[in-house]
Design a protein around this nucleic acid. Sequence first.
DNA 1: GCTACATTATGAACCGTTTCATCACGGCGG
DNA 2: CCGCCGTGATGAAACGGTTCATAATGTAGC
Lengths: 340, 340
Amino acid sequence: MTISAARRRASIADVARVAGVSVGTVSNVLNRPERVLPATRERVEAAIEELAFVRNGSARQLRAGTITTVGAIVLDIANPFFTDVARGIEARLERDDYTVMVASSDDDPVREHRYLRLFEEHGVQGVMVVPATDDISHLLSLRERGVGVVLLDRPSPVADLSSVAVDDVHGGELAARHLLEQGHTRIAFLNGPHAIRQCADRHVGVVRALEEAGLDPAEALVEVTVPSLNADGGEAGIRTLLARGDRPTAVFCVNDLTALGALRTLRREGIVVPDEVALVGYDDVTFAAELATPLTSVRQPTHQLGETAADILLRGRDVPAEQVVFQPELVVRASSLSPG
Amino acid sequence: MTISAARRRASIADVARVAGVSVGTVSNVLNRPERVLPATRERVEAAIEELAFVRNGSARQLRAGTITTVGAIVLDIANPFFTDVARGIEARLERDDYTVMVASSDDDPVREHRYLRLFEEHGVQGVMVVPATDDISHLLSLRERGVGVVLLDRPSPVADLSSVAVDDVHGGELAARHLLEQGHTRIAFLNGPHAIRQCADRHVGVVRALEEAGLDPAEALVEVTVPSLNADGGEAGIRTLLARGDRPTAVFCVNDLTALGALRTLRREGIVVPDEVALVGYDDVTFAAELATPLTSVRQPTHQLGETAADILLRGRDVPAEQVVFQPELVVRASSLSPG
DNA sequence: GCTACATTATGAACCGTTTCATCACGGCGG
DNA sequence: CCGCCGTGATGAAACGGTTCATAATGTAGC
């Protein structure tokens, strides 16, 4: 029985020794093979093969100073909206041979900070962030330290910080106005905390639509804060609403996952959608059209959102900052249509 | 107007200079603060603040040799099945203060290799991989180079490689047997390429169930290979099936996203589920129960799958390899129930 | 007053790669 | 025959932390 020592990873020096060349030559084989004689190159390649040599990324990066990687932080990677955005980001980055590391903050500012620090310590060139709170001072100072920053799914409050967003006020307005047109006069809004800007903005839009219709938001709007922006949150939101009694005839959910949970819970409680309660979601995810009651939803240009953000980040710090705002669009389906 | 020079990131040496101490002391403040006098520590901390110093992760890691990070490669990060698995992984890693980098191979072996190399170059301690092909020799050699490897959602073919899987043969069997019990004698299977082990195994299970029932798979089974394991793939699969004429009365889809696409397309074609075609999916994702026709599906212990894989990886190389296999479970809903 | 010892701080070595000034060698023109 | 030039190969410096043997200082005991 042989005892194999826990051997260290082979380094460039080991390869050089086996191939009988200098470390500089090995490095050249790896990075500028055309500069080294074919015979030498082959010897080096054989040594690499023999030792199963793998470059040490840390050393390489330490020397290089920067890497062709960017970071992205979204609120919830399990939400199809954000995976679509991430796909858009990837699509744009691939053209420039960049890679992206995607992290999910789960709406938690602490997790957001932790990932930002991780990204910065590892020398990413830039980050795209869907901030978990209204306070973005940490992103401004991050940028001052030389890291590119693009706000994602959120307009920038300052002119010199780039952002790519969808008009959430308008989105909320579209949803509420539609429900009003269907004859509803009291609307429940299952929303996330207003610390999340998208939630605050959609609320503003809803209020605006109510006021336009001559209604008093204090009476016509019942806002319920859900514990999480997913199906479980939607379920909890509906339960809260039902416990109160005096339930509205329409429910607007801050996203489709929440609407999914709402739909599930309403059905379990024997409440028929849309006859007894009309339902509108947000994001128009893949399955929205295929639900037991096809879901009316506000569609956003997800893929384009990601692509544009990545594009702005890559075009870099020399070009002036820009704020892009896309417009959402209402997709009407059965879940919100009044019977008859 | 001031011209701000593109200043270099502050290093530990800069902090030391400003604080009037040595680099070793700064490092001690960062890593073993209890060993340095409070007065000194405060001066160093002030300097860190003043210079907005952020540790260079590459340098730190280069010296340390390894990091508390592991990699995970799944087939499709947009599939709720895999995001649930990823959540399970995260949950287990968090307890040991590890972080995970998740990448999606999109069923592409080339992408899988690229990410594995990236992970290895950056010195991850281990990887959890859902392999895109049957060939796992690259994973075996990776492990020989000292990187921990756990096969994810796939049983290991060799005794000394750990794996965490769900019995896919049994899963396929459960689905097919259920359809046979409902009286169907010809079944379509919208499956992925057999290079993906899960697809091959589920096929074996289906064939086994057919044979048990005394049917000839060559006649009773129509296998359609979908171009992608998602809703678009399901749509394409149904279109292929319909173009052939002579369509079976039951369709088994390799996962719920595919089933979603199938359902959508059948509806558009005016084919009623389950009356004209029975439908069964796989994974039992969140929305399966809420679809226009609630979807019968094979449920897997996703979260536990991820947790267990991470646990085996963390327990490390000293303990012997182990192969864990969970059992799936059929959840029957309306999409597969014969009328009457 | 001297030794022994604990507490802090120091600074050089080290991790593995890339880069670049320098060198060795051969061919060629004058 | 000499100088020049181009092609390849070389080896040491540099990147920015961490670690550890060593030094400096203070304190206690005798």
